[in-house]
Structure formats: C-alpha cells, structure tokens
Simulated assay, not measured.
Amino acid sequence: MAEPVRQELSALAAIFCGPDEWEVLSLSETDGAVFRILTKAEGFMDTDIPLQLVFHLPLSYPYCLPGIVVNSKHLTRAQCEIVKEKLLEQAETLLLEPMVHELVLWIQENLRHILKCPEAGGGSEKCSSAASMTVDDGLWMTLLHLDHMRAKAKYVKTVEKWASDLRLTGRLMFMGKIILILLQGDRNDIKVPKSLMLNVNLAIFC
C-alpha cells in the first residue's frame, strides 16, 4: 500500500477519534483498505442524520474512485443510493489527491440539498447501480453490500462456491448488521448469481 494512503488513513483515524466513529475493516497489500466512518449531516428541518460511510480504497487510489457504501436508518435505500452517487460525482473532481475527508465534509454540508432533489424523494427499491473503473487490464475490485443473511452457514458456503467457480478471490466481512463482500478478479468473471441477487442492494466496482 502506498505511503500517501497510509498517511491518509492515519490522518482519518486522528480526525474521527470519537466513539465508534472510525473502524478499519480490512487492510491488505493486494486488496487495499476498507474502513467505516460514522458521521452526521444536517437533513430536513435542521435535524442531524447519522450516516455510516464505508470506503474501499483500491491499490490504484487516488488515481481511481474509491468504492463507497452509504447506510442510514433515517434514509431509504433509494436516498442512500442518491447520496452515494453524489459522493462519487464529487470524488471525480478530487482524483489524484487524498479525498476521503473532503468527501465527508462535503456530504455534511450538502446532504440537506441532496435530499431536497426530486430524485431523492423516497422509495424503498434496492440500489443496484455502480461506479466503474478498472484497476488494470481485466482486474477489477468489487464491493458488495448484502441486504440480509438469514441462514449464515448456508449462505457463506454459497458465496464461497460462487467465488471459487468464478475464479475470484475475496473476503466476507460482518460489521454489526452490515454485511460486505470484497472480491477481486477478471471483470468478465464478476457476476452476481440469481441466488444472491435478491440480497445484494449495492455494488461498487473499482
């Protein structure tokens, strides 16, 4: 992992030093870094809305966009998707430089404006769009957010078989009620089977 990224992670850990504000979920020389930030942003009626932001910084970061998962008990899935899309749009303006703290500050200042937009008006449909950028020729990193996992043992076996059949490497991560799958492999091999599709509500490709 590049030294500038390590420095950014250290700075973020120092900034988000409150209870449960910061947690590193995965740190790898091959997969990059996955971490969670808890913050609040002003929403409707000047009410603070808690946000859980999961970032995946691939090895090619900051030359490519980070993966982002947005969760909040106070927002619908559709609204979380809109917030994620707006964060990625903002991230495109910050390429080539450390951007995570800037993105957190930006969403703190702009969440209420995003929620006022017509496209963020509501709905509970599952999120499925993705931001895409290759790491190198054919090699992609994928972060999947599972909506739920009722039969954990059976589901884990299904995920392991799916990844093995597609020649993918990855990691299954549990963070309270948040379930993430980090995968790496050829772009053409990364396909979500129907048996998992109903539970996947957010996919980010980097």
Rank of each mutant, 00 (worst) to 15 (best):
Q7D: 13
S10Q: 08
A11C: 10
C17I: 09
L25N: 00
G32N: 07
F35A: 06
R36S: 13
K40C: 07
F44H: 05
F44S: 04
D48H: 00
L51E: 03
L57T: 02
P58G: 04
L59D: 00
L59R: 03
P62A: 13
V69C: 10
K73Q: 14
E81F: 04
I82P: 02
I82N: 11
K84W: 12
L87G: 04
L88F: 13
T93C: 10
M99W: 12
V100W: 06
V104N: 00
I107N: 01
Q108A: 04
E109A: 07
L115W: 00
A120V: 02
G121W: 05
G122R: 14
G123I: 01
S124L: 15
E125H: 05
K126W: 03
K126V: 05
S129Q: 15
S129H: 15
A130L: 05
M133Y: 10
L139I: 03
L146D: 01
V156H: 11
K161T: 14
S164F: 12
D165W: 06
G170D: 07
G170C: 10
M173W: 01
F174G: 05
M175G: 07
G176W: 01
I179Y: 09
I179E: 11
D186R: 14
D189P: 06
I190G: 00
K194L: 04
S195W: 02
S195G: 01
M197H: 07
L198E: 10
V200E: 00
I204N: 08
F205G: 03
